[in-house]
Design a binder for these strands. Structure first.
Length: 663
DNA sequence: TCAATCCGTATC
DNA sequence: ATACGGATTGAC
């Protein structure tokens, strides 16, 4: 195999294909597929990935030699290389860009030290069913027997899912978790079942706190040394070390934040994602892949099982269930009744019918009652308040209609008390606002008051300790006694024994945000907090400061995010929004955007929408196709980007497939 | 006729 | 990006 096929690390779309090099004799044995190399390319030295060794090249000209083998470490497995190509294709991006996301930067010192304290052979306890295919003498350890089944027995299809994993099959599931679920234990059991069946697993969570929980649950169930936790927060050395433990096959389970979605795992049997609606699962670097999509692609390519779980269900997860790609794991009515807290909206509270801002400033009596009752029972009370730093959205004082920009219908924001409101999309200032609904001229920030409410609550119960959990300091757990716990969405601590009451004051997001995910996102936040409450039978109550007639509030009352996601998906089908269709956005200065779209040979059925202003003198156009045209759309956009980069177009354009911040 | 320069295209 | 080849231009 004298020829090496190399992916050169250059960011140009028209160079997104392998180049062939000759392998110098001295690295003949070590320059193997998956290693990093340096090559001379167009006169300069660049980094590259050795993708493959082949007999001969189809290239007509003469081949150059590899300049240097950076390291014999094989950091790119065949499975991950194939995945990366598929992800690049899906997102109209370059393979090199995806590989930069998939393989952490090299840390030479770390590479030279042996990875885990215990090498794999000592770790290899006997596996009952290894399913090992010839020649591999590494054995995957049987998990330490855990108690119970991680809660899967609460769902009719749960035990079957676990059994299928243990049997080496590849079930695909969308799981709607019940309140009070120890999801980390459930994931750990699914992973352990996969390991017991002789295969490995990759699980991705949104943030460090969720990762801690899953890491701990796995350590308990699998014992030490069987898995690694991988996240960018570890820093370069420890991150690379965890990565190497996986790529060297010393662990067969990798859990982590989205940095782990490409982690190399031998004989992959399961990919899992928890809370796929969290924004953090969207990668902010080109080509902007989403962890859920990467993992599902991976399951498809590697014929692995897939688990998409959360308290709330996304439109995308609903799509998986509706198309039959995945099966649902949902509780039956009896389990639901036994586990859910009592949920009440305050919408029918007469104090609040007129003015939602006043409703948050003056806590409805229902919320007071719930808090008082919980504290009396020596149980903690969780108060979910909006995150600080959000621009307050504004609404009409008289009729609560959200204020929108007359020019582009974007949401208005107040930047200071006396300045007129400005649009958050196009930046135009609205001098004299008149409500299109009632003609009212007064505006009020819809958020102001919620934080104050939390403070008021603290004063109202003077002997009760108040804890806060937010951006600056996130608490993982709080003890069981009477206390007020004020938390921003995503930072809610788990309470020992569950909360007696949960008050959801963060409803302005739903009431004032215009984007298509607003309802889904509100429900996701509410369910995440409400899931920490005790069941109704144990006195658990949830009060949501919102109108009970709204669909997301209904879904919360019935603890049925599947129903809500079904409605959402139907709406998006109607409106032609993802995931019902495939959408791509093209952003840049107007000439560049027009230039790219003119060069793109879009599928016949493509619909081009826009432009909308995108700030900085840039604009954004959207291209929509049916899902059947998704691959063709991505190919057309990538090709067009290639034409532009080949002719050295000065003005850059950004192409995003399924952009996260749409609508 | 030849060198300097421009432009387009390939980069292994 | 940078290198190179072919075309073009301009001076002798």
């Amino acid at each position: 195999m004298p020829v090496a096929r190399v992916c050169v690390d250059v960011p140009l779309a028209h160079l997104d294909r392998p180049f062939d090099y000759l392998v110098p004799a001295e690295v003949e044995e070590t320059a193997l597929p998956g290693t990093r190399v340096r090559v001379r390319f167009a006169g300069q030295l660049v980094d590259g990935w050795l993708l493959d060794r082949v007999d001969s090249s189809g290239h007509d000209g003469k081949l150059a030699f590899l300049e240097r083998l950076v390291s014999p470490e094989r950091v790119l497995t065949a499975e991950v290389a194939r995945l990366a190509r598929a992800v690049a294709d899906r997102y109209a991006g370059n393979l090199a860009d995806v590989l930069r996301l998939a393989v952490p930067p090299r840390h030479a010192r770390t590479e030279q030290t042996p990875t885990p304290a215990t090498p794999s052979r000592d770790l290899a306890v006997v596996a009952s069913r290894t399913g090992a295919e010839g020649g591999d003498d590494r054995k995957i350890a049987e998990p330490v027997a855990g108690e119970g089944d991680g809660g899967w027995g609460d769902y009719p299809t749960g035990p079957g899912f676990l059994r299928a994993l243990a049997d080496g099959r590849s079930p695909r599931a969308v799981w709607s978790a019940l309140p009070g679920t120890d999801w980390a234990a459930a994931y750990a059991h699914a992973i352990a079942a996969t390991v017991a069946g002789g295969r490995g697993a990759v699980a991705v969570v949104a943030d460090a706190r969720d990762l801690d929980r899953l890491d701990t649950a796995l350590s308990t169930l699998l014992g030490p040394g069987r898995h690694v936790a991988l996240s960018a927060a570890l820093g370069p050395a420890r991150r690379y070390r965890a990565f190497l433990a996986a790529s060297r096959g010393q662990v067969s389970v990798v859990v982590g934040t989205r940095a782990a979605m490409f982690a190399p795992v031998d004989r992959l049997g399961l990919v899992a994602i928890w809370d796929d609606g969290d924004d953090l699962h969207a990668e902010p670097r080109a080509p902007y892949p989403h962890a859920r999509e990467v993992l599902l692609t991976r399951a498809q390519l590697a014929d692995a099982a897939a688990l998409v779980g959360g308290y709330a269900r996304t439109g995308e997860a609903q799509q998986l269930a509706e198309t039959g790609w995945a099966r649902q794991i949902v509780a039956d009515r009896a389990a639901l009744r036994a586990r859910t807290p009592q949920v009440r909206p305050t919408g029918d509270d007469p104090q609040l019918a007129r003015d939602p801002a006043a409703a948050t400033a003056r806590l409805p009596s229902l919320a007071w009652d719930a808090a008082r009752a919980a504290l009396k029972a020596d149980a903690p009370v969780l108060v979910q308040v909006p995150r600080r730093g959000y621009l307050p959205a504004v609404a009409c004082v008289d009729c609560r209609t959200p204020a929108r920009c007359a020019h582009c219908a974007g949401p208005l924001a107040l930047r200071s008390a006396n300045a007129p409101p400005a649009c958050r999309w196009c930046g135009r200032v609205t001098a004299a606002y008149a409500c299109p609904n009632c003609g009212g001229r007064r505006l009020r920030a819809a958020v102001v008051g919620a934080r104050r409410t939390a403070e008021e609550l603290g004063r109202a119960f003077p002997d009760t300790p108040v804890r806060t959990s937010g951006r600056d300091e996130v608490l993982a757990v709080v003890p069981g006694g009477a206390a007020l716990v004020v938390a921003t969405p995503g930072a809610e601590p788990v309470a020992d024994g569950g909360y007696g009451a949960v008050l959801l004051l963060d409803t302005w997001a739903l009431l004032t945000r215009s984007d298509l995910r607003a309802g889904e996102e509100a429900l996701r936040r509410w369910m995440a907090a409400a899931a920490l409450a005790r069941p109704a039978a144990a006195g658990g109550r949830v009060v949501v400061v919102a109108d009970g007639g709204l669909a997301p509030v209904q879904a919360l009352l019935r603890w049925d995010s599947g129903w809500f996601a079904g409605r959402e998906l139907a709406d998006r089908r109607e409106l032609g929004f993802p995931p019902a269709v495939r959408m791509a956005s093209v952003t840049g200065v107007p000439e560049a955007v027009a230039d790219l779209l003119a060069a793109a040979r879009l599928p016949d059925a493509a619909v081009v929408l826009g432009p909308v202003p995108a700030g900085d003198g840039q604009e954004r156009m959207l291209v929509r196709v049916a899902r059947s045209g998704a691959a063709a759309l991505a190919r057309a956009l990538h090709e067009a980007a290639g034409l532009r980069s080949a002719r050295k177009a000065a003005q850059p354009v950004r192409i995003q497939v399924d952009p996260h911040d749409l609508f």
